[in-house]
Amino acid sequence: MGEPAIWCRCNEGEILLRQIDGLMLAYHRPSGLTHMLASPLPEIWGALDAEPVSAETLLERLSAHYDLGKNALAELTAHLEELAALGLIRERACATA
């Protein structure tokens, strides 16, 4: 079994964030792409920081503020993978960066 994934936003210098109408605009400097993030992605982003955490730990953080359903962990993991695919957060590799 591989190690469980951990996540962080330790690449903040690569991203420029702006708020509009409850949405989050993210400009990804390395790619030059603009992303428009709708809930729950801004909330997930806000719960992350530069210290890598597991999805389980992140779920605990989010559960303190939001009423999350039964499949919350699976959904959260999918959203984390989505953010990582956009380059807006990083997976495990950043732990040693």
Binding site: L25, Y27, R29
Partner: peptide, 22 residues
């Protein structure tokens, strides 16, 4: 949000300007 999206489509140099355009 809609205005932002529509204006990116209506701009011919938004992508080329990078961060300044954003």
């Amino acid at each position: 949000g809609e205005a932002f999206m529509r204006l990116t489509q209506a701009s011919t140099n938004y992508v080329a300007l990078g961060e300044a355009g954003f």
